[in-house]
Design a binder for these strands. Structure first.
Lengths: 186, 186
DNA sequence: GCATTATAGTTGGCAGTACCAACTAACTGG
DNA sequence: CCAGTTAGTTGGTACTGCCAACTATAATGC
């Protein structure tokens, strides 16, 4: 049984007692989206691992570099929350990037406790290269679609991101933010 | 400069010498897609980390369990290539899942070297629970859109996945499969 | 101005991810 | 039956990611 239809199909029916065609259609779309999103995530996870290793930084290091290049400079805490990471993890990621001379720690002018993280010229250049390569790939991908399809694709993914981010309860790495419906059995 | 317009913008012009409105539009869409996809990946990476830790398995372990539940049973090599992982990594992931009693290693009936990996009943149940929770979230996400928008979203992500997978050169974790345009400076 | 409290980062400890290289066991082909 | 291949495991290393404990600096309170 590959499609793995779960027990919670048609949750609206479960919650409200009414089961209609609209809800069924939504359930079908949900399953489709789930399968496609799962593939997408897996595909891109692999792509990233593969891609970035050519440039001697890891995926996480690349996220950090991206944040720093985009924002110009950040304190460690700011970086950690940008990446949804524990500050200790962020600190070690910065260690690695500093060792490789892509990021520099500097004193914060107004707060002696803080450090200001800045990408070095080499770091900015490296991220530019990586981003360019990603853009080339994504451009090739997009070029296979008609312009109007392309635009709606971008728009829809954007709305998906917005909807997804709105649901995130950022609790600094602590667990079980949402949902709870796994009361039956541990 | 937040949008980070790269040097390679309008690559068609760079390659062919002609620069027209079509190519410019494609470049603009590419940048948009890139930004949105980046956000999507980051958002979902976080969500996954958060979500799955509630069920005492990690993200990678969950991918492995998903493959095994979906496919019924796999050898270790098959699992490794499904997950785009080195076989040694796959072996240790299976170690963890076996320790937790979600997966069982069994002798292969026709090949004494192979092991057949199968999810246990508990493993299948666990994956079902996790998948259900993801579906609930995704259903909630989809329910914010009109049915026709929903359907095109699913379709478009599907095409995106297909296009992306088609480009993957699966070389068992070895590096630098695609592209090469970073000849200028190491 | 000095004790208290809070905040920013670092370090230690632990488990997991992920790679390569070296190894064992088992199959395959002369 | 012996060389070569294939399936998995184990050793080694580096990174990710968490919590907890720590240091140093700020901010607050009296």
């Amino acid at each position: 049984m590959p499609p793995t239809l779960p027990a919670q199909t048609n949750l609206e029916a479960r919650a409200t007692g009414r089961s209609d065609a609209r809800a069924d259609a939504l359930d079908a779309d949900t399953l489709d989206l789930h399968r496609r999103l799962t593939e997408l995530k897996r595909v891109y996870q692999f792509r990233d691992r593969d891609r970035i290793c050519c440039h001697d930084i890891s995926v996480t290091q690349c996220w950090a570099l991206e944040s720093l290049v985009r924002r110009g400079s950040l304190t460690l805490n700011e970086l950690a929350s940008e990446l949804f990471l524990e500050k200790s993890t962020a600190s070690r990621v910065v260690d690695a990037l500093e060792r490789k001379r892509y990021v520099r720690r500097a004193r914060h002018p107004r707060d002696g406790r803080s450090v200001l993280l800045k990408p070095t010229a080499a770091g900015a250049r490296l991220y530019g290269t990586i981003e360019s390569e990603m853009l080339v790939e994504e451009r090739r991908l997009l070029s296979e679609f008609d312009p109007e399809i392309r635009r709606s694709m971008v728009r829809l993914i954007g709305r998906l991101v917005d909807a997804a981010s709105a649901r995130i309860v950022t609790r600094g790495g602590t667990c079980c933010s949402i949902g709870s419906l796994s009361e039956e059995e541990s």
